[in-house]
Design a protein around this nucleic acid. Structure first.
Length: 421
RNA sequence: GUGGGUGUAGCUCAAGGGUAGAGCGCCUGACUGUGGCUCAGGAGGCUGCGGGUUCGAAGCCCGUCACUCACCCCA
């Protein structure tokens, strides 16, 4: 029995990595343009970190974490998301004491033990940003703008931005009983899951996709109606900011995030063709989290996007710039020719020219076939005859034009040809 | 955790009880030092695995594993 990869964990083969580089480079570029700096935090942390930040009763913590004991018995967990570790690092290094705006981005693998399906894996990748220490609604606007510009730049189809106001914790605590009372009156009309949710997470009932639940909650009391003036004013400023900079959004009063730490602004960007999933990225404000994890009271906003989901949506031909036509294939054959070819390869590479060869090929025909398959712009033909003369033949693979060049002036000749093609 | 679908050549898929096939890809030759195109030839399979039914199983039955989609939940 040969060893295979783990369920829900995928290899990215060389054919696909250019698409991924395009996504990652675009993400880094936009994050940089907005003044976010990269942070790299560990891929695993003490389990308690995630339990405390994400929320002990969320699905992620209850049943989806890769948790294992360290040798001394400490419970460790592969990170299921990026915010917890970033916050931990922020606190641990006392970044609050630094007078600069604390704006971070991260990218990397996350782990959740779920049943894999389209757009959902056990090891998946996220890009995310966190803005610490700014309570101004402009910080929310900035984060949303960054998310929107980044995804728009990639030309993902049918992007929609939905925003909602969850209010302050006290607002939700005030609203919860009225919602529960409303739902309790019509449990029969709700799906089984929602009947359970009345206890565990009543707000989520509003976000249920089952049509019966949607109609049943049609006239439910809205969270928006029981928000405090302060929360309303805050959210109004966020919307005003989005209007001012031309970010199109839709208000969705039913939008509820799955993680416990969100407050005030929440948002989600959806798109099509993601199978049953439709969220590419989501985020919100989480003012209480830093304090919950033992840091000073710190306002914060952030988002995360799923890189696999972006990759699924990316137009077919999209990829980072190709290097193929700038590559020169060295066809060294025959005893002296292949020896001279090896030297030429190395010389070209040290001079900054992308140079390749297939050492399995023994004949010129086989070499040129490989050059063609690799899509190289030029081939350097170097057989025994040329080696004897101290020369080589440089062939333009498109035009078939060939020029003979001395090996002593190889690099300059090749660079000239590459530049003029 | 629950349910559906699918497992046949490197890839995409045919064959629905009677010798396992096609397209693409790969290798060789036509072209002995010139790629793509064309033509001719060739290699490649315990039909996921284990049992059962049958004279005979890729096919039917049972089990099992893998992949996949969906529920749940989420990025």
């Amino acid at each position: 029995m040969t060893i295979k990869g783990i369920k829900g964990v995928k290899d990215l083969l060389p054919e696909e990595t250019p698409r991924w580089r395009l996504i990652e480079e675009t993400a880094r570029r936009w994050a940089g343009l907005y003044g976010y700096r990269e942070i790299r935090v560990p891929i695993f942390e003490v389990t308690a970190l995630f339990a405390r930040s994400i929320g002990a009763s969320t699905d992620i913590v209850e049943k989806e974490m890769y948790t294992f004991p360290d040798r001394d018995g400490t419970s460790l967990t592969l990170r299921p998301e990026g915010t917890a570790g970033t916050v931990r690092a922020y606190i641990e290094h006392n970044r609050a004491a630094d007078p600069l705006p604390q704006k971070y981005f991260y990218t990397g693998p996350m782990f959740r033990h779920e049943r894999p399906q389209a757009g959902r894996l056990r090891q998946f990748h996220q890009f995310g940003v966190e803005s610490f220490g700014t309570a101004d609604p402009k910080a929310d606007v900035e984060v949303i703008a960054l998310l929107w510009r980044f995804l728009s730049d990639l030309q993902l189809p049918a992007l929609t931005l939905e925003v909602n106001n969850l209010g302050y914790t006290t607002d939700r605590e005030a609203y919860r009983p009225t919602l529960v009372a409303y739902l309790a009156d019509r449990t029969a009309a709700l799906c089984g899951n929602c009947q359970r949710r009345i206890e565990t997470n009543p707000l989520r009932v509003l976000d249920c996709k089952v049509p019966e639940c949607r109609t049943a909650t049609e006239n439910a009391p809205a969270l928006a109606d029981s928000l405090s003036d302060k929360a309303r004013a805050y959210f109004a400023s966020v919307l005003q900011g989005l209007n001012a900079i031309g970010i199109p959004y839709r208000q969705n009063h039913r939008l509820v995030r799955g993680l416990d730490y969100y407050c005030l602004t929440t948002f989600e960007v959806t798109t099509t063709n993601l199978g049953a999933q439709n969220a590419v990225g989501a985020g919100g404000r989480y003012d209480g989290l830093v304090e919950t994890l033992g840091g000073p009271p710190t306002p914060a906003v952030g988002f995360a996007v799923g890189l696999e989901r972006i990759a699924m949506m990316l137009p077919e031909g999209a990829s980072a710039s190709s290097e193929k036509n700038r590559t020169i294939y060295v066809a060294g054959f025959g005893e002296r020719g292949s020896a001279a070819g090896l030297a030429a390869l190395e010389e070209l590479r040290r001079a900054g020219v992308i140079a390749v060869s297939d050492f399995r090929a023994g004949t010129l025909k086989a070499h040129l076939r490989q050059a063609d398959r690799l899509g190289c712009g030029f081939s350097l033909i170097l057989g025994d005859d040329e080696a004897q003369k101290g020369s080589a033949v440089l062939r333009n693979m498109q035009t078939k034009a060939q020029i003979e060049t001395l090996l002593s002036s190889l690099v300059s000749q090749v660079k000239n040809s590459l530049a003029s093609s």
